[in-house]
Amino acid sequence: MKRNVLRRAGRGLAGLILVLIFFAPFYWMVLTSLKTLGQTLKMPPDFWVSDPQWRNFSEVMRRIPFFSMLKNSIIVTIGILVCQCLTVIPAAYAFARFQFRGSSFLFGLTLTTMMIPAQMIFLPLFLMFSKMQMINTYASLILPSASSAFAIFMMRQTFKQVPDEIVEAARLDHAGEFKIMCRVMLPIARPTVVTLALITFIATWNDYFWPLVLTTKDTVRTLPVGITALHLDEGGIDYNVLMAGNVLLVIPVMIAFFFAQKQIIKAFTYIGDK
């Protein structure tokens, strides 16, 4: 009996420590974003603020072209989502349903590209875009992610799980290949499409690397790069303003995570299961 109580208390304490380790940084981020510069330099620090400094947020917008960068983020994210829908779905469908000459070679090639990180090829890609005068265009940010090997792999897996008989029934129902794909298969694959869209949204929204290496001007830069300007432009770091910028960057993803936590976690675990 006593052992049981101790054990439960131990479990509770361990859980609490975990929560602290993983939530404290976010609490600290929000808290700092509401402090004055003086308060951030106070020792011992305050763990609560009585007069939140909302102006830190307007300060963010004063120092960087926040709304134009927000617009860029949205354009790039939507652009990539739309492009991937158009390229991934037919490719996955073809790989799942047809045996054609070279199909396994092309699919192998697709899988190989999954192993190649952006960080490996950014330099030649930058040179390529600059030769084509495409640096500082939305196209340079969207096109490299216009298709996704991982998404093709996942969608193919989903299409393959649909029993052949359903496709055959549709053929007997006088449906052409395009109709089978759009009216029969795609609705069945909807959960996977949503899942992939969530993953792509989060990855694109958070991406700092591509916009950093493929742009040189603020006109097309996205929010993550913009936020870093809060750090780099000033001599010292105003942590309260920097954290306010971070809060703004994190909010959309956090809202998505709050409403679709189960789905997002499931989305990411999909990868590991295959």
């Binding site: 404290a24 976010f26 994190v250 993803v253």
Partner: peptide
Amino acid sequence: LQGVLFTPYIVSLVSISYVWMWMMDSDYGL
């Protein structure tokens, strides 16, 4: 707890770098 553990994974590395940089600050860090 799984949800809590997972949260940092979906947050931009930019934010995470800055938060930890701030907390690891040698003079004023938490």
